[in-house]
Design a protein around this nucleic acid. Structure first.
Lengths: 212, 212
DNA sequence: AATAATTTTAAACACTTGTTTAAAACAAAC
DNA sequence: GTTTGTTTTAAACAAGTGTTTAAAATTATT
């Protein structure tokens, strides 16, 4: 057995792989770059992970799980006002993505350039997705019947929120470089973000409001 | 001078490059694959385009232009109802993206994995972005002062619309494979799309409505 | 028809890729 | 202290990469 120090060879390799794969993608990252970043001999990467594909898959699976797991449980906290729950959800999702800014593009890119990846993971997520949707739908139905909101499908609710939170973040660099934000009077994306968060909330608020 | 038949060597190469770069990305596509798809000798690719980078850049620039050019002029057509304009805009943007489904992910991926790309093109788009924003803002201000809508920033208007139209499309495969759509009672993304288009319109409608 | 310019070809170049090997260094067990 | 198992190393492997070469084929010019 080997010693299990915190920065064992295996862990150092995986950390380097995490960084390089999300920075350069599956094709852009190389075994030698991973080895160099991990300060380790090239052969050790194959010794511990058998192949580049297996190494990539271990990172991809981890990141895919992190991407598809959204904390919809917050939205089911009946003790709080629905708008308050949405606000919290927006903040959490924003925070989660800011923790690993490249995550959404990494998942979208790699699955686009190699659709096979999706077939290898689809099983696990199916059950969970169904449950979360049912719970949220129940909450939305409840609030509708008590006259608080208009009837809304949970999937639409999620789609709108997720799109408006994630897409602007993955478009950050392009928005900045093309001057779209500057043209609207915002110095940087950082100064636009809090404003946009409020706007997202306002949009959802307006959408939820019962028709009078 | 060479003959300028419609499928000249240069054009055949560019067409093959277009397909392969958007399918496999800059790193995934190879000069030999391009040559093979164009049914042409490998050396000819370098003969006409000098290098892989130059070939890629010519494709990237073309696609970037197509991605950042959004037909906001529709929204300025004062002869029509604002909601009608939005509906048309949603349809056009949807149609435009469906014509080249991989376009958004291609741009987002390649600029993410090689941020330098943005520095090479930013100049051209800046002026245009400013003009379009000013025009849209003027229209929105006009409708606000005549009491038709609440005050809204053009950038927010664009951000919401663009996010809700583009993001679901680039998430199509993942949504399908993870069963999110099936859990909501939709057989495929194709059956969800028209429903979502209506939802997007409803959201924008609710958001625009003046506060009573 | 002869010459010049252009286009295409097969082959090779130098370099990088993922992966394997066989020996060395190290730690654990007896 | 010797043996056993594990980890690390430098070197090499075969295949693939972008690119260049120099000759051949084709087309255009005179």
């Amino acid at each position: 057995m080997s010693q299990e120090s915190l920065d064992s060879t295996e862990i150092k390799i995986k950390e380097a792989a995490r960084e390089l794969f999300s920075e350069l993608g599956m094709k852009g990252a190389t075994m030698r770059k991973v080895a160099e970043k991990a300060e380790v001999n090239v052969a050790l990467v194959n010794y511990y992970f058998r192949s580049k594909e297996k190494l990539f898959l271990s990172i991809f699976e981890e990141k895919f799980r992190s991407y598809t797991k959204d904390g919809l449980s917050i939205l089911n906290d009946t003790s709080r006002d629905l708008l308050d729950r949405i606000k919290t959800y927006i903040d959490r999702l924003n925070h989660q993505i800011n923790n690993d800014q490249g995550l959404p593009i990494f998942i979208l890119s790699e699955t686009h350039y190699n659709p096979n990846l999706l077939d290898m993971l689809s099983d696990l997520n199916k059950e969970q997705a169904a449950i979360e949707t049912q719970q949220l739908q129940a909450t939305l139905d409840l609030d509708y019947h008590s006259g608080k909101i208009r009837p809304i499908k949970a999937i639409d609710f999620q789609m709108a929120l997720f799109s408006m939170i994630v897409f602007p973040i993955i478009s950050k660099k392009i928005l900045t470089k093309t001057g779209k934000l500057a043209a609207a009077g915002f110095e940087s994306y950082e100064s636009y973000e809090p404003h946009w968060k409020n706007t997202t909330l306002s949009i959802m608020e307006a959408f939820l409001k019962p028709l009078s």
